[in-house]
Amino acid sequence: MTQEFHSHSAEETRRYAREFAAGLHDGDVVSLCGDLGAGKTEFMRGITEFFVCEEQLSSPTFPLFNIYEGTLRGEPVTLHHFDLYRIESQKELEAIGFDEYLSSAFLSVVEWADRFPQYARFYNATVRLERTGEESRKIVINRTH
């Protein structure tokens, strides 16, 4: 199922992300793609807002892997967030057991996932953001389940 949205602000991008996050479950793995400045970090912020994660994203430049603890309807949620922008090779991902993380029962979001298409089989949703103006973005969501 594919959905397309047009956002005209960072807040609107986060709102679409919160709506998207409402359909996520433990074990889901999301591919988050788009060029630099496309809005991936704002979209991720919206996801963390939905799950009421205390620790919010502070910058688009952060370590390869962060874990956010949040809640959904009073139940704890663990969100794994990967940023593959600085990863140069599949060997680097293999060294941290990336495929094992993606196979876990935790919810995972992977920015720059399209840089490593060999992991595509793990993703059950893809979010592609594209800059269409100074503040506007096209957001295309494709769910495979």
Rank of each mutant, 00 (worst) to 15 (best):
D35M: 03
H6E: 13
I141R: 07
N124W: 02
G37E: 09
D28P: 03
S104E: 11
E94G: 00
L24Q: 07
H8N: 12
T41E: 13
N66Q: 13
D114K: 11
F82N: 01
R143D: 02
D35P: 00
Q56T: 12
G27K: 11
Y85F: 15
N142Q: 14
E75W: 04
G133W: 09
T48V: 13
S89H: 12
F122S: 10
H81K: 12
M44K: 00
A10I: 01
V30F: 11
L102R: 13
E100M: 05
V52K: 14
E49Y: 08
L32A: 08
E135T: 13
L129Q: 02
S104Q: 13
S136W: 09
R121C: 07
Y16P: 00
K40W: 07
F5L: 14
G97D: 04
F51M: 02
L32F: 06
I139K: 09
I139G: 10
H6Y: 14
F5M: 07
S108P: 05
T144I: 04
T144R: 15
L107T: 09
R115P: 00
S9V: 08
L129S: 01
N66C: 03
E130Y: 03
V140Q: 14
M1F: 09
E75N: 11
I67N: 00
E69L: 11
L93I: 12
E88A: 15
H81D: 09
D35Q: 14
R14D: 00
G74W: 04
N124V: 02
A17I: 10
I96E: 06
R73V: 01
T71I: 11
E19S: 12
Q90W: 00
E94D: 15
H6F: 15
G133H: 10
G74R: 07
E4G: 00
N142L: 06
A22N: 08
N124T: 02
C53H: 11
Q90M: 04
C53Y: 07
S9Q: 07
K91I: 06
T126H: 15
V29A: 11
L32P: 03
A22Y: 02
I87C: 14
G74M: 04
H25T: 05
S9R: 05
I96V: 15
K40A: 03
T144Q: 11
S136G: 13
E134I: 14
F51W: 08
H8E: 07
L84P: 08
S104N: 08
A95I: 00
K40C: 05
F43H: 05
T48E: 01
F62L: 05
F5I: 03
A125G: 01
S108I: 08
H80R: 13
A95S: 15
S31A: 15
P117N: 06
Y119V: 07
E54M: 03
S7R: 04
A113Y: 04
F82R: 03
E54A: 13
R131H: 12
T126C: 13
E55N: 15
T132L: 07
N66I: 03
H8C: 02
G39S: 10
E4R: 14
V52G: 00
L93P: 06
V109M: 09
G133Y: 11
I141F: 08
P63K: 06
F50Y: 15
R131A: 12
S103T: 12
S103L: 10
S59W: 13
Y119K: 03
E69N: 09
Y16G: 02
